[in-house]
């Protein structure tokens, strides 16, 4: 019996201690940790065409959001494939950030005060300006919010839209809000007429409308009910990591401003006429890259891997079947809101 107890002790300790003996990261910032690990863990949405979905044809994950994950990996490692995609449910996003389950969350996540200040998250630059809308069946002849009296509005569990629809309708009309774990379940409920309306980000509604067989029978109400600025997020408290994510996003925007594309980035390196800001960005002039503790060619790697902001947008969203327009997501020069601070 005695020896059995020792056996028990050893095994139990071994099992309980198993997590402890695995990879011990060095103390330091998240960047050091990510480098140590050898890949970036990026929280994404696995179920929205155009933004993040399992691309079985190419045996990978594709989309607008996931391209920014790749951009980040390219900046850190010079290799856009060193990224681990982790699909997280909307409700679990901030849990995953807080517990360090993911290094960065690029998952059509709305930048809000509460999340920034209370939830221990920090947000980067907005990569997609979205707004909440409501999608209804055309045959129901609903044209405004008032027409929704008594309707069942479905939304995704744990999102700002689920709260915004309660806000937008409070005091005006009485609606029943039903939430599901993901957008597919929501659309399913809508198809089955369990839901009379779907409240979600316009980007998601349009993506689903464009890719569903019954999409032709649905209408997205024109009013934008809330601001939904979608931005990358990470765990608060790491300034270096924040700078890195922020400037990788800005790099894609600056590249678009100066016409640096995936195709011409190599030749631009030797282009003497290139704007000095772009030269600095590409590492041709100055040593700003040292501040970020990155490779000299980090921005070049980013552009080579995913292209500039416009290219990312076009590849994932402008292309069929989504056919989005740039709209407010055009560069500031073209009347949009996409704007990057100067790189100097």
């Amino acid at each position: 019996m005695k020896r059995i107890s020792i056996l028990l002790i050893v095994t139990l300790i071994a099992v309980v201690a198993l997590p402890l003996v695995s990879v011990q990261a060095q103390d330091g910032g998240l960047l050091a940790k990510v480098r140590e690990r050898g890949n970036l863990i990026c929280g994404i949405n696995g179920g929205i065409p155009g933004f993040g979905f399992v691309d079985t044809a190419n045996n990978t994950v594709s989309g607008f959001d996931t391209d920014f994950c790749r951009a980040l990996a390219a900046a850190i490692f010079g290799d856009a494939t060193k990224v681990e995609f982790k699909a997280v449910a909307a409700a679990d996003r901030f849990t995953a950030i807080g517990s360090g389950e993911i290094d960065v969350l690029i998952r059509n996540t709305t930048f809000t005060f509460g999340r920034d200040a209370q939830q221990g998250a920090e947000f980067g630059p907005v990569i997609f300006y979205d707004g909440m809308s409501i999608m209804v069946r055309t045959s129901d002849n609903i044209t405004s919010l008032e027409g929704l009296e008594g309707a069942t509005v479905c939304a995704i569990q744990g999102t700002t839209t689920a709260q915004n629809v309660a806000d937008a309708t409070s005091g005006k009309v009485k609606v029943e809000v039903l939430t599901f774990e993901n957008i597919d379940q929501v659309i399913d409920g809508f198809v089955q007429t369990r839901c009379d309306a779907v409240a979600s980000d316009q980007s998601q509604l349009r993506a689903k409308k464009a890719t569903s067989e019954k999409g032709g029978e649905w209408t997205i109400l024109p009013n934008t009910l809330s601001k939904e600025p979608l931005a990358p997020a990470w765990k608060a408290g790491d300034a270096q990591w924040g700078d890195l994510v922020r400037w990788v996003v800005y790099a894609t925007i600056i590249a678009e401003e100066y016409g640096v594309t995936q195709g011409n980035v190599e030749s631009q390196l030797t282009n003497a006429d290139l704007n000095p800001e772009a030269k600095r960005l590409l590492g041709v002039e100055g040593e700003l890259y040292k501040v970020l503790e990155l490779d000299q060619a980090w921005a070049v790697n980013v552009i080579k891997a995913v292209g500039n902001y416009g290219e990312i947008f076009d590849r994932n969203l402008t292309a069929a079947p989504l056919s989005f327009e740039r709209g407010i997501n055009a560069l500031w020069r073209n009347g949009g809101l996409i704007y990057a601070p100067p790189y100097r």
Binding site: P49, V54, A87
Partner: peptide
């Protein structure tokens, strides 16, 4: 299970749950 969820989110397969 998760992969099946992922696959039916793809354009063209959304009604093939």
């Amino acid at each position: 299970m998760g992969m099946a969820n992922g696959v039916i989110a793809k354009p063209g397969f959304t009604e093939r749950k």
